[in-house]
Design a protein around this nucleic acid. Structure first.
Lengths: 152, 152
DNA sequence: TATGAAAAGTGCTATAT
DNA sequence: ATATAGCACTTTTCATA
């Protein structure tokens, strides 16, 4: 459950490129292939490594328009929150949904093709949900940095 | 450059789990291994698949505190924006930096251990940057949904 | 916990349809 | 454009220190 410096260096490799072979990592870290192998398996077992995924370039598949949608609910009763969270989670356009502090209750990260598709998402899906108080859309002008790498 | 239904189904598999073998995918989609292989290679060449990565569970490595930090700059001259973006990109705590529309210029996604570490990040790193006008921190109460899967 | 060698499985290439 | 077959490489297991 506690990771040492070696684990961190392995994780750095795998967070950058999970296709790196154990051999490559072993060479870089001056260790045997099996040592690396066993460490990685342990990191997987312990849930440090959650999963391995392919990252798709949104721009190249017509999902280059990113909008952060802030949402305020009318009430804050538990059933309402739960229902809202369940509904939101089922929407594929919503890549991320955070329950947050501040003026709004939730912030969604929505990925669509363009403003037309976003409007469609708003009217057809979002505003038809129950208990939505108000929304505020923040449009992404530029993705300055986007990373999945956690610094350890 | 244009992807068909089959490509989409392959991407769905790989976005969920990039460790799936071509054989597994081939079985599921009732195709030969080579057909799947060639398609995946094409998706990689065309930049549809950007990269393969290991996703680390932030909670399990002491980075469970996520803050969205909204930033307003004092000026909006090109040199200032460029400098700010360069500086921000180099900070490992900042997983994401978006240039956005609205009341603030930028929204950062910051990953740290706890409030103490966030305060340290603010005073030592963020507010020492030039041309920062004002900031507003939004704290994550709960990660309702977090996905890297783009719906195609 | 790490190592090296052997076994099993996958990816890759060439060939064929 | 998709399928089959052989080779190379990687992962995985095991014996050992």
């Amino acid at each position: 459950m506690k990771i040492d410096e070696l684990d961190k260096r392995i994780l750095k490799h795998l967070q950058e490129d999970s296709k790196k072979t154990n051999k490559e990592i072993a060479n870089d870290l001056k260790l045997s292939v099996t040592a690396i192998y066993e460490r990685i398996k342990k990191l997987e077992r312990d849930g440090i490594i959650a999963k391995y995924v392919a990252l798709v370039n949104p721009e190249n598949v017509g999902k280059g328009f990113m909008v952060l949608c802030q949402i305020k609910l009318i009430q804050h009763k538990k059933e309402i929150l739960t229902k809202f969270e369940k509904d939101i989670t089922s929407l594929p356009e919503v890549i991320e949904c955070l329950h947050v502090s501040g003026d709004y209750d939730y912030i969604l990260k929505v990925l669509v093709k363009d403003m037309d598709e976003y409007r469609e998402f708003m009217v057809a899906k979002l505003t038809s949900l129950d208990h939505i108080g108000s929304t505020k859309s923040v449009f992404t002008i530029n993705k300055v940095k986007q990373s999945t790498i956690i610094n350890l």
